[in-house]
Design a protein around this nucleic acid. Structure first.
Lengths: 219, 219
DNA sequence: GAGTGTGAAGCAGTTCACAGCG
DNA sequence: CGCTGTGAACTGCTTCACACTC
């Protein structure tokens, strides 16, 4: 009943950005923010901000703007950040390790409680306070720790096979950093993040001398 | 004259994926690939593939498919991968270090020749064969090494200030991994990659029990 | 009057369907 | 006959414009 209709994916992604700026505004004791201010900070237009926020119901105050604390709370809830999520890291290589230690994840309530790697030399070692477990025990580990979300950071060859197993073991969402797009069955949320795609789209822009739009959202 | 009209951004991103699969097909001695095969591998539809490739002119063979070597060559050229790019890494923290060592970048001709950090203890140390240089000497370093593209991996607070200086020093493209979207003047290519946005869009999907589409491109 | 909320117009990317070539 | 190449329909997001509220 709080979010009756489907919210566009593009809007959800901007919610994440709004939230970060609202938290900063809140820290600065700002209590109301008009659409224009938010727009300037994340690099869109005021109309876009209003349209986005209208998906949450209407509680902006006309002539004043949006209540910073109220909006913060709604966004947090909408993004599912009002609870902790049990996250597993698959692959404890360089990328995996960097992700494990990435502060913004922890601050947001994503707890990586499980780390898996295929390299026998790594098994039993610790990453922070988490013991690295063997890939062979993947299903066991995921179920034991009630993992809801998996971050994949293994080499290309291993990725699809591993994610299939993770999904079969009940994982409902996958964030993929392996350099190949993965496939998952309907009903499982998936985001493929390819660092190479980003870089190559830039080399295309450079090579073709195309000015890219000034405002660019996180993608 | 090779790419007369503007190619949609979404298509460019898929080009990057096609290329990777074409290289794999080539290694397997496959010489022609029909749109359906490529579609299956990157997770789109055949119509989408044909539409995408039609931007490159028409050289698919009817009844046969696309010539793997020919398509590979065109894509490589279109993406600007037929030359090397001079890349700087701004920020030699955990994320920066992982990016520096990321093999797929190197294989594609992106050479990180310059590494900058603000931490005085890191200055002079080496990352691989590159000496870490001081942030104070940013402009000097970028100009000396003729840097065309900068990868930003510094904390949120430092990011905008640093990228402004990098752009003033002549950098034409920026790949941003700092957890805030950056702004750059028109004419500079920018891609903001936010790991938090990705993760939060997943927690939204989980929290709202929405099945996300099965096929999902790298984003 | 400053700023929201929204229906309507505009635009971009995707899907469809089919004519036409190898 | 299979598969490409493409105009035309469609879908979904963004921008606009303005009535309405605080």
């Amino acid at each position: 009943m709080s979010t009756p209709a489907r919210i566009p994916e593009a809007t959800i992604r901007r919610f994440s950005l709004y939230l970060r700026h609202l938290e900063a505004l809140d820290a600065d004791q700002v209590d109301h923010a008009p659409s224009g201010l938010l727009a300037a900070r994340i690099g869109t237009t005021a109309a876009q901000v209003r349209k986005d926020l209208s998906h949450l119901g209407s509680f902006g105050k006309r002539g004043l703007g949006y209540s910073v604390p109220a909006l913060t709370a709604v966004l947090r809830r909408t993004l599912g950040l009002d609870r902790r999520w049990r996250v597993a890291l698959l692959g404890a290589g360089r990328i995996g390790t960097a992700l494990f230690q990435y502060e913004p994840f922890r601050r947001r309530g994503f707890c990586i409680t499980t780390v898996i790697d295929a390299d026998p030399r790594k098994i039993g070692r610790r990453l922070g306070d988490v013991r690295i477990r063997s890939e062979g025990r993947l299903e066991e580990a995921l179920r034991e720790d009630r993992i809801e979300l998996a971050i994949v950071a293994v080499p290309a060859e291993a990725a699809q096979r591993l994610v299939d197993r993770a999904v079969a073991a009940g994982v409902g969402a996958v964030l993929n950093y392996a350099p190949v797009p993965l496939r998952v069955p309907t009903g499982v949320a998936l985001r493929n993040v390819s660092m190479l795609v980003e870089l190559e789209s830039l080399s295309h822009a450079l090579a073709n001398g195309r000015a890219r739009p000034v405002r660019e959202e996180a993608r």
